[in-house]
Amino acid sequence: MVSMKPSDSVEAIAVELRAQAVRLWGEQRAGELETSINQTAQQLWDVGQETVDRDLEPGFYQ
């Protein structure tokens, strides 16, 4: 299970994602996913920096 805190850096998030990828698909596949993992870490960091109103529910179907 990937564990992330809002204070985590992009690099720390990438480490978590990489570790989970290794657990799921092995070292080789995790290595092939390196670029995607780094992009995803950045995306997760981006949304982690945003604060939303406590009462705001997800939209799903717009």
Partner: peptide
Amino acid sequence: RSGMEMGMLIPATKYLQAQRLRRKFR
């Protein structure tokens, strides 16, 4: 394939945070 594998790594809380941000953005 890599896109869906990234999706498998993303925690549910972050997915829901993204959906909440979408609603605010809309």
